[in-house]
Amino acid sequence: MQMVHKGEYPGKSTVSFLPMIDMSATDMSCIYSTLTFVCNLATRYDVSPVLTFDQPLYWKALTIVQNEKPNSQLKSLVLRLGGFHTEMSFLGSIGHIMSNSGIQEILELIYAPNAVSHILNGKAVARALRAHMLIDTALHCILTSDIFGIQIPGQVDDDLDQVNENKSEIMHKAAVLHTELFEGNITTSNNSTILKTIDNTMVTQLES
Score class of each variant (00 low, 15 high):
Leu81Met: 07
Leu120Gln: 01
Val176His: 07
Ser99Tyr: 09
Pro56His: 09
Ile119Ser: 06
Asn166Ile: 10
Gly122Thr: 08
Tyr58His: 15
Lys173Thr: 05
Gln151Ser: 04
Leu35Cys: 00
Met28Thr: 11
Thr144Trp: 04
Thr52Leu: 09
Cys39Trp: 02
Asn191Asp: 14
Ser13Ala: 15
Lys75Asn: 10
Ser72Thr: 13
Asn121Trp: 00
Asp146Glu: 12
Ile150Lys: 08
Gln66Gly: 04
Glu105Cys: 04
Cys39Phe: 00
Phe37Ala: 11
Ser168Lys: 15
Asp136Pro: 01
Leu81Ile: 05
Pro10Arg: 12
Met202Ser: 11
Gly102Lys: 06
Ser145Val: 03
Asn166His: 10
Ile31Tyr: 00
Lys69Asn: 11
Asn100Ser: 13
Leu77Pro: 01
Tyr32Met: 09
Ala174Phe: 01
Ser76Asn: 13
Leu139Glu: 02
Ile119Lys: 06
Glu108Phe: 05
Ser16Leu: 07
Ile97Gly: 03
Gln66Asn: 04
Val163Cys: 12
Tyr111Ala: 00
Met28His: 05
Ser16Asp: 04
Gln155Met: 14
Glu165Met: 12
Ser33Tyr: 01
Val47Arg: 13
Phe148Met: 11
Asp27Asn: 12
Ser208Val: 05
Thr34Ala: 10
Ala128Ser: 09
Asp136Tyr: 03
His118Gln: 08
Lys6Thr: 09
Ala138Met: 07
Met28Ile: 13
Gly102Thr: 07
Thr14Asn: 05
Val116Ser: 04
Phe84Gln: 11
Asn190Lys: 15
Ile194Asp: 05
Met88Ala: 14
Val176Met: 08
Phe17Trp: 05
Asn121His: 11
Phe90Asp: 11
Gln2Thr: 08
Glu105Met: 08
Asn71Lys: 14
Arg44Glu: 07
Val65Glu: 08
Ala131Cys: 01
Asn67Asp: 01
Val4Asp: 09
Lys196His: 04
Leu134Arg: 08
Gly82Ala: 14
Val125Asp: 01
Ser33His: 02
Gln104Arg: 14
Ala112Phe: 02
Ala131Arg: 01
Val203His: 05
Ser29Tyr: 01
Ile21Thr: 03
Leu160Asn: 12
Ile147Gly: 02
Leu177Pro: 02
Asp159Gly: 01
Leu81Thr: 06
Gly95Asn: 02
Leu160Ile: 09
Leu107Arg: 06
Phe182Ser: 15
Leu81Ala: 07
Val38Arg: 07
Glu183Ala: 07
Thr36Trp: 01
Met20Tyr: 04
Ser76Lys: 13
Val50Gly: 02
Val65Asp: 04
Leu143Pro: 01
Thr52Asp: 00
Met3Asn: 05
Ile31Ser: 00
Glu165Ser: 14
Val50Thr: 07
Thr14Phe: 09
Leu81His: 03
Leu177Tyr: 10
